Simulated scan of single mutants.
Amino acid sequence: MKDIVIRPALESDFESIWTIFCTHIVSGESYVFTTATSREAGYQYWLGQGVRSFVAASAGGRVLGMYRLVPNQVGRGHHVANASFMVSPAAQGAGIGRMLGEHSLDQARSHGYLAMQFNHVVSTNGPAIGLWKKLGFSIVGTLPKAFRHKRLGYVDAYVMYQLLQDPDHWPTADDAPGV
């Protein structure tokens, strides 16, 4: 793990990001995107305006995984972060997801977010759910049959949430900084 660095994603990383992205959407097991998703839509999702994206890269520069960090909502919901993660199938099981998850929480805190929410964690994605629970997230809601799994049909999705700071120390609503 010491040979892996997490750094801001660069334009030059997009080919690797796109390859990992396509692998996940073709599987149809954990993301709402379909194979009809255009390359431009993928680019905007990972590297578009207002998106903070990071990659985990090997010492040789190979992208092993990535995440994006954005506000979960606009305006009065802007203090809650949202993040999406993908790890290359060739790198799964090596702790890359955990590294990215921990990094995203640090980044969210450093950018002034007060909480983080995942809107659509597929209930059959046990490794992701286990990781998010270990990193302090709780399932706060179940969306019945909200995901159309490629192999299993309609399955539930979870909303997962974590406070990043003690709410007793949050700024008042009128004093809250823009993130």
Score class of each variant (00 low, 15 high):
His78Glu: 10
Gly97Ala: 15
Gly77Cys: 08
Ala128Ile: 05
Tyr161Phe: 15
Ala128Lys: 00
Met99Phe: 10
Phe147Trp: 08
Gly60Arg: 08
Phe137Ser: 08
Pro89Arg: 13
Gly130Trp: 06
Thr142Pro: 02
Glu29Asn: 05
His24Thr: 03
Arg7Cys: 06
Phe137Thr: 01
Val121Cys: 07
Tyr161Gln: 13
Ala56Met: 05
Ile4Glu: 02
Pro8Tyr: 01
Ala128Trp: 02
Arg76Trp: 05
Gly112Thr: 04
Ile4Trp: 08
Gln49Ala: 08
Gly141Arg: 12
Ala128Asn: 00
Arg98Glu: 13
Gln44Thr: 03
Val80Met: 04
Leu143Trp: 15
Phe85Ala: 06
Gly130Lys: 09
Ala128Thr: 09
Met160Asp: 03
Ser12Leu: 08
Arg98Phe: 08
Arg98Met: 10
Gln165Lys: 15
Arg76Ile: 07
Phe14Ala: 05
Val159Phe: 09
Arg109Thr: 12
Arg68Ser: 14
Ile96Glu: 00
Asp175Phe: 08
Ala94Ile: 02
Tyr158Asp: 01
Ser58Ala: 15
Ser84His: 06
Arg68Trp: 03
Thr142Lys: 15
His78Trp: 08
Trp18Ser: 04
Leu114Lys: 10
Gln44Gly: 00
His103Met: 09
Ala9Phe: 01
Ala56Gln: 01
Asp175His: 12
Tyr45Ala: 03
Gly65Ser: 08
Leu135Val: 01
Phe85Arg: 02
Ser12Glu: 11
Asn82Arg: 10
Tyr45Pro: 00
Gln73Arg: 14
Ala176Arg: 15
Ala115Arg: 15
Phe147Asp: 06
Gly130Ser: 14
Phe137Gly: 02
